Amino acid sequence: MKKLELRKQFLNLRKKNYRANLSISPNRFVRFLKKKNIKSKKVGGYFPYNNEMSVLNILEFLEKKKYHISLPVIGKKNSMNFIRWSHIEPLKINKYGIPEPLSLNKIKPDILLIPLVAFDNRLNRLGYGGGFYDRYLSKLQKNSKIIKIGIGFSFQKVKHLPINKHDQKLDYIITEKNFFE
């Protein structure tokens, strides 16, 4: 099945099966970081959109533990950067309808939480098709290592995703039920 067909199928599946209360507990997430010996304090998250699993509880929890939190902002030529953000700060809506920070304080996260449309056992991710995360990760990984953690629901897993040379593989995927590595 082609990416476009899979994307449509899984966006419909996510819409149909979405439950706002289905998420990953912040304590479970922190235990995961400790188990994997991930000590960085700079986390790039996302504001949930279009029935994505929310990570806002995780971001707020991490912020209280003195982590530096950031959210993506779409810039010129569809570039993406991460901007420092606090859960008490207001957001603006971008051209895609996604909330973004108002600040201009860029941050380079060492841990990146990435929303999923679908994923497979090989840690491949299907996104919305804009390539924002793939371009950002490709640019960033030239000079530094970033830990890429896909966040999604267990029902978004498929046996195999079609991939191309621009697709960036994840390091881990976390769902409400499992960890994949």
Rank of each mutant, 00 (worst) to 15 (best):
M1I: 10
M1L: 11
K3V: 05
L4G: 00
Q9T: 13
L11I: 11
K16G: 00
K16D: 13
K16P: 00
N17E: 11
N21E: 15
L22Y: 09
P26H: 05
N27R: 08
V30G: 00
R31S: 15
L33Q: 05
K36V: 02
S40N: 15
K41P: 00
K41E: 03
G44T: 07
F47Q: 03
Y49T: 06
Y49R: 00
N51M: 00
N51G: 00
L56D: 03
N57C: 01
E60S: 15
F61T: 10
L62Q: 07
K64M: 04
K66F: 09
K66Q: 13
H68C: 05
I69W: 08
I69P: 01
S70H: 07
P72R: 07
I74K: 06
I74Q: 02
N78K: 15
S79T: 15
H87A: 12
I88V: 15
L91Y: 05
I93E: 09
I93F: 04
I93R: 11
K95H: 14
Y96V: 02
P99T: 06
E100M: 02
P101S: 08
L102S: 02
S103T: 11
S103W: 03
L104Y: 14
K106I: 04
I107F: 09
K108S: 15
D110V: 00
L113T: 06
F119H: 04
D120F: 07
N121K: 15
L123H: 08
N124V: 02
L126D: 03
G127C: 09
G129A: 09
G131K: 12
G131H: 10
D134G: 08
Y136A: 08
S138W: 02
K139T: 12
Q141A: 05
N143M: 04
K145G: 00
K145S: 13
K145C: 01
I147Q: 01
K148L: 11
G152V: 03
G152T: 05
S154I: 01
Q156D: 04
V158H: 05
K159W: 03
H166N: 14
D167R: 04
D167Q: 06
I173P: 01
I173K: 03
I174Q: 04
E176F: 02
K177C: 01
K177A: 03
N178Q: 13
